[in-house]
Design a protein around this nucleic acid. Structure first.
Length: 808
DNA sequence: GCGTCCAAAGCTGAA
DNA sequence: CTTTGGACGC
């Protein structure tokens, strides 16, 4: 086997033939002809069209290994980009595995964002940044935009900052700097979009900060404006590989095209049928026109699927066939037989969760005719994250271990973000956003007015916020209790800063590029270990105490999280390194230990596979998502369909699709129709399950206002026998017409003014939040109601409806 | 300046 | 149903 030491012996020369002859290449023997073709074609542009489960990652990693063992490239000459950290990690591991040792030497294997951070740190000054710039996450961005919006006198209720953030993000994805935004987009955000975008960019530079989109955008700008720098990297990255090419947006596409422009040794791997990120600017067009960008490109199709049984594959193919304008691949498999895709309907979401929970337990015990399965082999893939809740609730109840992947992330929690803001202020005192966040957390008697004074002082003197705060307090502009507390905070900050050491970025010069070393960042040695410093900061700032004194039931949990945060810090060399890791790798540092069922979104499941997969919530409006169809029409629907395809193709052996008749949306019952994708599943590859017991099966027919009730046996039978018949479908579409016309219960059923007067003392009423109660008093349009559970409350009559229930 | 109460909005998707 | 932000009272 090769090793990096051995490879050093080949340094600097063109060695392919010698190396090839000298080394055994077992990784090549493990490939099928198509994979091998793609792997062995090292020079020139290559497009690998790889369907789901066709050994794409295997081929990609084999290609890297092939580049290395043939001596064609050295590890640091290969630029390999992925979209997720998960994918990058996996590829590193697999390259290491094939080489027989860890692939530490692949410095340029990573996500677009991680690689761009490295590059941008080297060239930050070219776009007006310092090399220790901060990376803002979505939360910071929104807060910043809100400030700008309010400064413009725009009502941020009518024009939410979030909407502007989306617009700007969209422009950045399309590699549009403010001056390049097309006239057609001038109306964006009430006509103020472009102006605010420009302001926002200016502000970011002032703050020495970037957002996610900037990482790419700035690098594209630099490459475009500095041909010499671009050329350096073109020489440097002699081989480029891109995973999930169908998901690249315009900015990423330009970035790649610029870098590959010289040698054109670029190998892109993708599957147009798995393009599911159109909403964040991905252009399927990139993959469709690859051979126009790179004339003479070799196109290889991987069509043999090694993952799923033929029924699962056929079901997926049947669904995706409904899309127009595909490059067209025909997946096939040697694996014959297996179970059909299973389909089941339930009364509501709770029952769906209950049934899936039981099914999982049965699979675990092996009583479902398959032999026992580990929980790790099972996954629930949902369309929208709010669907997860029903499963979590249910699994907690029955004590079924689960793990949520990509759910509410550790680093997005309030306490973690606060703690990190402290770290940020300490490591870079210019970080205004972080300072704003912590200045009055815990409460230091520094409210709106004091904070405005700080802002003004800073602006008038042209200094940072921290500096402005010091000036303000020294000049007695801040009064009362706040002044002393602020002074103490500032002293603390200065002290903590002295205990750490700022990043000593050693910008490597040309020679480093030429002699083969990757650009490095090095940091000085701090006086106190950073993890101890972190603990000190949290304790001395009073932040820990704040939660200790908080009586909320979740406070202990928050303290736990802070402890966890500090202990994770030990894995990093310094606070800066940690902060960067956090901003780029928002992975769930979930406890991998133990057997657990995975719950995740369909988007999050891409690239994964499980023996048994559950796909709940296949209902029109939820999946395909109404919003997607409203916003993007047929294009949106086709993307949803690809999502369905991705979901089904995650499964190896058992795939169970389910839908419900009633679902609670915003706490209100809505009747649902089965997804149109269910109609598109080929009958001969689907088995319709009869719901067990006497429950379930009904949908759309019963008034959703009542709590779920037992459905009739007739309904159940109709579901079991008739779902495939044209008559059933017609019935369902009719039910849909009636269904949507049905009066909605509770909240929406607002009682008009005339009706209000009809309330009298003693009437039974229903309130969406407080439940049932009796009217105890009437005061204009307000009612005093003695609620059965919530006690006496004064509520607006419009939010109460008459009820004829019987108190229990 | 801080806490409490109430009305309104929100649930795609994510580095 | 849950979360959030604004209004109001202390």
């Amino acid at each position: 086997m090769s090793s990096f030491d051995e490879m050093d012996a080949f340094e600097g020369a063109s060695l392919s033939s010698r190396a090839m002859a000298a080394r055994p290449q077992p990784y090549l023997d493990a490939l099928n002809p198509a994979q091998r073709e793609a792997v062995e074609c090292l020079q020139g542009p290559v497009l690998m069209l790889a369907g789901a489960g066709t050994g794409k990652t295997k081929a990609l990693t084999a290609r890297i290994v092939h580049l290395l063992t043939t001596g064609t490239a050295r590890t640091n000459e290969i630029l390999a980009v992925t979209f997720t950290n998960k994918a990058a990690r996996e590829m590193k591991e697999r390259v290491g595995g094939m080489l027989g040792q860890p692939a530490e030497g692949m410095p340029w294997l990573g996500t677009f964002h991680a690689i761009c951070v490295k590059l941008l740190r080297r060239h930050a000054e070219l776009v007006g940044l310092k090399n220790n710039f901060t990376i803002l996450d979505t939360d910071d961005v929104i807060r910043l935009l809100k400030q700008l919006i309010r400064a413009e006198g725009i009502d941020d209720k009518r024009w939410p900052a979030r909407a502007l953030a989306n617009v700007i993000d969209d422009w950045k994805n399309r590699a549009l700097v403010p001056t390049k935004v097309p006239v057609a987009d001038a109306s964006a955000y009430n006509g103020k979009g472009v102006d605010l975008y420009a302001q926002y960019q200016t502000r970011l530079i002032e703050l020495n900060a970037v957002d996610f989109g900037d990482l790419l955008l700035h690098m594209v700008t630099i490459f475009q404006n500095h041909p010499d720098i671009l050329e350096q990297y073109q020489r440097w990255f002699r081989f480029i590989m891109v995973d999930e090419y169908q998901d690249t947006n315009v900015a990423q596409y330009l970035w790649l095209r610029l870098l590959a422009g010289g040698h054109k040794n670029i190998c892109c791997v993708g599957d147009d049928d798995q393009s599911i990120y159109g909403w964040r600017g991905a252009e399927v067009g990139n993959i469709l026109r690859f051979d126009k960008d790179f004339p003479g490109a070799k196109v290889v199709r991987l069509e043999q699927n090694y993952r799923s049984t033929e029924h699962i594959l056929a079901a997926a193919s049947g669904v995706i066939a409904g899309n127009q304008g595909r490059l067209g691949k025909e997946l096939w498999t040697d694996a014959k037989g297996g179970e059909k895709v299973r389909l089941i309907g339930h009364w509501d979401g709770e029952e769906e969760a209950r049934w899936i929970g039981e099914e999982i337990e049965a699979m675990q015990r092996g009583t479902r005719g398959q032999g026992p399965r580990d929980l790790d082999q099972m996954a629930i893939l949902v369309r929208a994250s709010h669907q997860m809740r029903a499963f979590e609730d249910r699994f907690l109840t029955i004590g079924l271990p689960y793990r949520v992947i990509g759910g509410p992330r550790f680093y997005e929690r309030l306490e973690i973000r606060d703690a990190m803001a402290y770290f940020r202020v300490v490591t870079s005192p210019d970080d205004a956003l972080a300072f704003e966040r912590i200045v009055n957390t815990p409460k230091r008697g520094l409210g709106d007015k004091a904070q405005q004074t700080i802002q003004m002082t800073a602006r008038e003197n042209g200094v940072s916020l921290v500096e402005g705060a010091r000036l303000a307090v020294e000049n007695g502009l801040i009064k009362g209790k706040g002044a002393g507390q602020l002074r103490q905070l500032l002293d603390n900050l200065a002290r903590w800063s002295a205990m750490t050491v700022g990043p000593v970025l050693e910008i490597d010069d040309e020679s480093v590029l030429d002699d083969g070393g990757a650009p490095q960042m090095r940091f000085g040695e701090p006086d106190v270990p950073h993890y101890e410093l972190a603990q000190i900061i949290l304790d001395e700032s009073g932040y820990t105490t704040m939660w200790q004194n908080d009586k909320n039931p979740d406070s202990p949990g928050r303290l736990e999280n802070l402890k966890e945060l500090v202990s994770q810090l030990e894995n990093f060399e310094n606070l800066q390194g940690f902060l960067e890791h956090v901003s780029l790798i928002m992975d769930n540092a979930s406890d991998d230990a133990g057997q657990k069922v995975s719950i995740m979104t369909l988007h999050g499941s891409k690239g994964l596979e499980f023996p048994a997969v559950f796909l709940p919530g296949w209902e029109d409006g939820l999946f395909p998502s109404q919003r997607s169809m409203d916003e993007s029409g047929l294009k949106g629907l086709e993307e949803e369909r690809r999502l369905a395809y991705v979901g089904i193709t995650r499964s190896e052996e058992v795939c169970t699709i389910s839908f419900v008749g009633n679902r609670r949306v915003f706490g209100q019952w809505q009747s649902q129709l089965p997804s149109r994708f269910i109609d598109e599943l080929p009958d001969e590859h689907v088995e319709v399950l009869t719901p067990p017991g006497l429950y379930g099966g009904g949908y759309g027919a019963a008034a959703p206002s009542e709590a779920p009730v037992r459905s009739s046996i007739e309904e159940k039978v109709a579901l079991a026998d008739g779902y495939n018949s044209p008559g059933w479908k017609r019935m369902q579409s009719r039910a849909g017409q009636y269904g949507t016309a049905q009066p909605k219960p509770a909240k929406n059923q607002i009682i008009d003014v005339k009706a209000v007067s009809s309330f009298t003392l003693g009437d039974r009423v229903f309130h969406q939040k407080f439940g049932y109660g009796m009217i105890a008093g009437i005061d204009g349009d307000k009612l005093e109601v003695e609620f059965d559970k919530a006690g006496l409350k004064k509520v607006v009559a419009a939010y109460v409806s008459a009820s004829d229930d019987i108190p229990f």
